[in-house]
Design a binder for these strands. Structure first.
Lengths: 245, 245
DNA sequence: CAGACTTGGAACGGTTTCGTACAGAAACGT
DNA sequence: ACGTTTCTGTACGAAACCGTTCCAAGTCTG
């Protein structure tokens, strides 16, 4: 069941290499500056990387797994505002002059592996190196673009089309066509009731874009998903490539 | 018609002083570094400050007026992803290592006045001063928080409640209880059809939260609007106060 | 003043989505 | 093996929202 399935259709523009892509993009000097402080950590699905309101004590550069960035309303329901994997890191508010995390960040879909660095070490490093700082800020910027597209997507598109987008975002961040996602997981992303998820999944299945089995989604036709997502998918990914490669 | 009406109910936490609040928050040194390059400009309603995809040649610190940050889908419809006024500036992607603007930014509701600085001058300045850089990044961070709340708002709330939120965001950025907003303006923010705006406005009027006259909304009961907006309003504003004052 | 344009109000049927509730199916613990 | 939990499918009426169209009222222009 944990079989690695080759990626279907077009290849995901985001995740190609092992390890964290931001770290891989660093210059030799920048990498040398922070690597002594990087410490490997792992997370199980559901684990919290940060909690809303808590001080940021360290930053995590993911090597595997998917982190969901969640905002909660009235201490009640929670909604995803974004998603990231091995292309990014968690703790960006620190670079933006905030010492607390505004969001819950939790592992989703698959277990995570990351390199963790203490906040003070990284702050010292970006004070020294403008190129390091720029690299990290560029990722933050791309994440902001993703948030922007989440807004227009939720305003303009039906549940089915928004679902296609989220599947793509997950697909980009796993190394297989098999994505572990329960309906409840989708509910978090889409902010809809669980049975609407069921219906939308069935529609995507009828269109042969995916196959859904218990707690899993199989990407069958990536091109079809991209057609459904329209412009709500793609731009942040292109910008990542342009700015960070 | 351009009469200045005193602000009703609780005072807006955002705009109290004249001039740009970020510039006002700068240290003497930081201000001295950039002020030689600041040049006053004005914009009419509808004017573009930046266009999506265009290189960022200058940054604008608003002193008056409201700027809407708009994303467009399939070169067709446009949707607002955020709003800012004299508490912020336009051109933040430059600080994040991007030289192009991802969004259209246009003047809304009322004519604008701003101080403009060439991109290269500002880049040089933030290279010199970490405090200047932090101040500007903090605003960007707060803007990101606003985007996050726009996401949860559009996922969780009805048109009426989302409208209450946008009215508050506008209210904070004008110096009166009179806000110039056509139904078409709301349509842009809410991503709904124009007649839904009409209906929602009527409901808010019935509840005595606002009064709507042609092309204008009068804030009558700010507390009621805040109750409707719930947690989708307030946090970014608090964070602005915490980080920038 | 006359015509053009912008803004707002109302109505239609149709679709999407909601809230809720219930039941079957698969996985899990013991 | 058994009960329990998790995940999924389905159904119901109700509400929200949609696209569209038409018209009235206000504003602007010449």
């Amino acid at each position: 069941m944990a079989t690695i399935v080759p990626i279907s259709g077009d290849v995901s523009p985001l995740i190609q290499t092992r390890g964290n892509r931001l770290l891989a993009a660093l210059s030799r000097d920048d990498a040398a500056m922070i690597s002594p402080y990087l410490e490997p950590v792992s997370f199980a699905v559901g684990d919290y990387i940060t909690r809303a309101g808590a001080p940021i004590e360290s930053l995590c550069f993911f090597e595997q797994g998917i982190a969901g960035v969640l905002d909660s309303l009235d201490n009640d329901r929670r909604y995803a505002v974004g998603l990231l994997g091995a292309e990014g890191f968690v703790g960006w508010p620190l670079l933006m002059g905030d010492d607390r995390s505004p969001y819950d960040v939790t592992m989703r879909a698959e277990a995570g592996r990351a390199l963790r660095i203490p906040a003070d070490k990284l702050l010292a490093a970006i004070e020294q190196s403008a190129t390091l700082r720029t690299t990290l800020l560029r990722f933050t910027h791309v994440f902001m673009l993703q948030m922007g597209r989440t807004i227009v997507s939720s305003l303009a598109h039906s549940i089915e089309r928004r679902m296609a987008r989220w599947i793509l975002l997950y697909h980009d961040r796993v190394r297989a066509d098999e994505i572990c996602m329960t309906h409840e997981e989708f509910r978090l992303m889409l902010g809809v009731r669980r049975s609407s998820v069921t219906d939308a999944l069935h529609r995507l299945e009828e269109e042969q874009a995916i196959r859904a089995v218990r707690a899993k989604v199989l990407v069958v036709d990536r091109a079809k998903l991209m057609a459904l997502a329209g412009d709500t998918y793609g731009l942040p990914e292109q910008e990542y490539a342009r700015l960070l490669e």
